[in-house]
Design a binder for these strands. Structure first.
Lengths: 100, 100
DNA sequence: TAGTAATATATGAATATATATATATTGAGA
DNA sequence: TCTCAATATATATATATTCATATATTACTA
């Protein structure tokens, strides 16, 4: 069969792979799901809602933020995280579809 | 903000994370892209087209097959791999969109 | 300014992953 | 049956990831 489309450019593949790899972890995917439904949430809210240690939650949140998947906003002693990447939202909506 | 939708079920999240993690590797994503454009391809065609060692290509192909992302068909001494998972195709189409 | 709650960081141990290389297996044809 | 080409497997090494735990930082408030 002939190739009807061009091969994906390597920089795009590399960047996409980074995002997919990051989302390819159950807890991070749960966090993403929670944040999408919450709009935004503090570290405490997340670690309580998902029943994981505070440090673990913080580690994964920072991980996702480093990759541009999440953004954060400080308010006093609290830190609010939210989804900051359209690709992550897209992945989530695909998973939602599958859930039906 | 209240939660307008239910949280994703854990088994679905786990399964999805497994797939995303697997696709979250540049070479595997390139292989997926190549297979989508080829329809199907042998190990040799893949390792030559993507310029990677035969054993490396085989390892990644088996990896993806183990996770149900690829299927394969034997024909004599050749083994043809093809995409066998709708989710993988969906991911690919999203990446294609981003490429435009 | 001392205490406290929220968050982040440092560190180590266990496990998983990626790559490279060498070798084995399989099937076809001379 | 011998050889060759295609594919798979075994193994070692290096590196990355994950989780757990302890500790540090930060900002508010009494």
């Amino acid at each position: 069969m002939t190739h009807r489309t061009q091969s994906l450019p390597t920089p795009l593949v590399d960047d996409t792979a980074r995002i997919l790899k990051c989302l390819g972890h159950p807890l991070r995917l749960h966090i993403l799901d929670f944040l999408e439904r919450s709009g935004e949430a503090t570290v405490s809210e997340i670690h309580e809602a998902l029943d994981v240690e505070q440090a673990i939650a913080s580690q994964h949140l920072i991980n996702m933020r480093d990759k541009g998947i999440l953004i954060r906003r400080k308010e006093g002693v609290n830190v609010y995280y939210a989804i900051g990447d359209a690709r992550a939202l897209k992945v989530l909506s695909c998973v939602r579809e599958a859930a039906c």
